[in-house]
């Protein structure tokens, strides 16, 4: 099932994400997803997230699919050139993976192989364009595909609370031009900023899923403020997390914060994307509290 059909039906789409393991045993990832994420629409599978080498996204997607979930294949341009990316897309389609999320990817220097050659032959925009080409039965080199063409729900990302919001909107527009059908956002902690962003983004007419992270502690919030692009946790949330450490540790404060943001933003967006970062178990609780 392509999640674009749900957007088309006016459904509020909930997704979450999981990361494949650095190893060959992905059973716990699948088990956790089955237990906590079965109730949601689809599950993103990250692609060597943060440039840290892990099992590929595609095999993990297949495992999740076999477990009855709807996986979204994340595809970055950092590790593969246009040949490998297209080949991966054909493979995904052949294995029944029809939801994708196209990203540029973090730079190699951010990860655990800083000496690796950063590829960036294509970027998120040209990757989306390439997917559209494949859907037309032609590859990027202009050669015809044999047999049926693949068909994907093509997602992309945008960073609404970035301090470069104009550049982000410009890029978003290009992604739409290139064929993006839905967007997932970077984590939002400032509803007002998100609502302002959506005022401008709605002109593109594409569904946007609010990105949500459940903050685990004041330390984590400060770390994100310092190191994660496009993420800014307001001081009062940090104070709330710091006020009662036990409560924060138990996840109660974080879930409350995340639920509040979802509630505030819900009228302005078409879905929510939860980056649980290991707290997959709290997703059902969060959704309940947010009234979804």
């Amino acid at each position: 099932m392509r999640i674009t059909e749900l957007f088309d039906n006016g459904q509020f789409v909930v997704t979450a994400e999981v990361g494949p393991p650095k190893g060959i045993d992905a059973s716990h990832v699948v088990e956790e997803a089955k237990e906590y994420l079965s109730g949601i629409t689809a599950v993103n599978v990250t692609d060597n997230q943060s440039s840290v080498m892990r099992m590929g996204s595609l095999p993990a997607c297949v495992m999740l699919k076999n477990a009855g979930l709807t996986p979204i294949l994340q595809l970055t341009c950092r590790d593969r050139n246009r040949i490998a990316l297209q080949s991966e897309l054909l493979g995904a389609a052949a294995l029944g993976i029809d939801n994708i999320l196209c990203l540029t990817g973090d730079h190699t220097k951010m990860g655990d192989h800083p000496g690796a050659k950063p590829v960036f032959d294509l970027d998120s925009v040209s990757l989306l364009h390439t997917v559209c080409q494949l859907e037309k039965g032609v590859d990027l080199g202009g050669n015809e595909l044999v047999g049926e063409a693949p068909k994907f729900a093509k997602g992309a990302v945008v960073s609404p609370c970035s301090d470069s919001v104009d550049a982000q909107l410009a890029k978003m527009e290009r992604k739409v031009m290139a064929g993006a059908e839905y967007f997932q956002t970077q984590a939002v902690f400032d509803s007002e900023k998100f609502i302002q962003f959506m005022e401008k983004a709605k002109q593109f007419g594409k569904p946007v899923q609010l990105g949500v992270i459940i903050p685990k502690s004041a330390g984590m919030a400060k770390f994100m403020n310092k190191n994660v692009a496009g993420v800014h946790v307001p001081q009062e949330m940090i104070d709330a997390l710091a006020a009662d450490k036990e409560r924060a540790k138990a996840g109660i404060t974080g879930v409350e914060i995340a639920a509040k943001i979802i509630k505030e933003c819900r009228p302005y967006c078409q879905g929510v994307h939860i980056m649980a970062l290991g707290w997959e178990a709290k997703v059902p609780q969060l959704l309940e509290l947010a009234g979804i």
Binding site: L103, T104, D106, H107, K109, M110, P118, F120, D123, S124, V125, S126, V157, V158, S159, S162, D163, S164, A167, Q168, A170, K171, R174, A178, Q186, N227, V228, A229, G230
Partner: peptide, 29 residues
Amino acid sequence: CSKSLVNGQCGGCKDGKCEVDPGMECGWE
């Protein structure tokens, strides 16, 4: 741009700086 991107800014820009080197202004910015 550290990634030599030709279609616009990536999501790694923070405070107008590059994700690879916070001392470097984001090219797309």
